[in-house]
Simulated scan of single mutants.
Amino acid sequence: MNTRLIRQTLAAATAATCLWAAGPAGAEPLKVGFVYVSPVGEAGWSWQQDLGRKYMEQQLGDKVKTQYVEDVPEGADAERVIRDLAQQGNKLIFTTSFGFMNPTLKVARQFPDVKFVHSTGYKTAPNVATTNARFYQARYVAGILAGHKTQTNVLGYVGAYPIPEVLQGINAFTRGARSVNPKVTVRVIMANSWFDPGKERDAALALLDQGADVITHHTDSTAVVQAAEERGKWAIAYHSDMLKFAPHAQLGAVTHHWGPYFTKEAQAVLDGTWKPDQVWGGFKEKMVDVEGFGPAVDDALKAELKVKEDAIADGSLNVFAAPIKTNDGKVVLAEGALDDKGLNAMNYYVEGVVGTLAKQ
């Protein structure tokens, strides 16, 4: 990671990674900081988070003044960056990666008058809220797309870490694919990083070598879709639409949309009504989508996918409805559907995933 860049950011508010959107003179704007785990770049997780920041600016205008720091490693560096943003007068700080959870809580205790929102975590405090998107809902629909398009019946998945958020996506993708094509199997390689284009590319190529003809990822760069483009195979992008990086390979993209949520949180701080809520939104809340369809996806298939999206949104289709079995035959759920507690404790692969999950 670019630790020199981070040190520069901590040394001065004018560092290159900190961009300000200042309003006109007059009423003091709410200063809002963002911490990104990877470079903003042109696509991916941090890119999509930054689109949310820009949306918030557009909606609230001179009521807010925003700052961000990109490419921040999880751990001690994150704690320093978060503390620096609080010391600079930011009264609302969004920390946008799972590994920022404990650093956020630690800094929040030191700055009780600052509001914090942590993405993808599960721990709150009097001044710490959490948010997440139900990525797995869109993953299920993307799995249906992959299940229809595969010819080898082997799908590939580049994961980041074997944590519940990632496992939800892998398992939902597999269940979606097998709902239309029971012959499908999904092979997984963990990159053990959120953003490492070299590792992501190597994992993607290895999966293609194992016979996968549709690959997807839970990592931040465009490396996976670009590998599929080079090999003449299919890909489903993640976080943001990556069609311009894989114009022939991309079947579609699972995307996340943060702007309205960021705007709501900032407005609540301005109004004095902010609460340390836990928000987990999916298709119903329009926090996830499947879009960016490539030329290989016809209108009939798009319509089928839309029906599934609507069914998930209205609750008539539950991605993790019983029966649920692990890939070694253990019954996880015989009836009903997984609740949020069960989703957040997920530590297994479902039927159809090839391989063994390392014990955590």
Score class of each variant (00 low, 15 high):
S38N: 09
Q48H: 04
G121V: 04
V297W: 05
L145D: 12
F94V: 00
L167M: 08
Y136H: 13
V32C: 01
Y261K: 10
V354T: 15
G315S: 14
A125N: 07
L155D: 04
I144S: 00
R231I: 10
A191Q: 11
M101D: 07
G143K: 03
G61Q: 12
K244M: 10
W20D: 12
L19K: 13
E304A: 05
N90L: 01
G75Q: 06
P126W: 07
R175N: 05
I215A: 03
A212I: 00
D84K: 10
Q58M: 10
L92S: 05
E265M: 12
P162S: 04
F135N: 12
V32N: 00
E229N: 05
V319D: 06
Y348N: 04
R175W: 03
I215R: 15
L145F: 15
M346C: 13
R201L: 07
L251C: 05
E309Y: 13
D271M: 01
T130I: 03
A268T: 08
Y348I: 01
A160C: 14
G44F: 02
G252A: 08
T96K: 00
T14R: 12
D84C: 14
V72S: 13
V290Q: 03
H257Q: 09
D340E: 14
G143S: 13
G33H: 10
G147V: 06
E165A: 11
V307G: 06
A345N: 14
A15Q: 08
H248S: 12
G198F: 12
F283L: 05
A133R: 03
H118Y: 14
T104G: 09
F100W: 08
F100Y: 12
A129M: 09
V186F: 02
C18Y: 01
L207D: 06
S119C: 15
Q250L: 09
A322H: 07
A223P: 03
K306C: 04
G156T: 12
W45P: 02
L207I: 15
P164H: 15
P39T: 09
G99M: 14
L51F: 01
P39S: 08
F98W: 11
L10S: 06
Y261S: 08
V331A: 11
H239I: 02
Q67I: 02
L343H: 09
A11V: 11
T9Q: 13
A266N: 02
A237I: 10
D310H: 11
K149C: 01
A191T: 11
H257Y: 01
V224P: 12
D314L: 10
H217K: 00
V354L: 09
K65A: 08
T174M: 05
D310V: 11
W20N: 13
T219D: 14
W280V: 04
P103G: 00
T131H: 07
I93N: 00
V307C: 06
T150G: 02
N192G: 09
Q151K: 06
F116G: 00
Q88R: 13
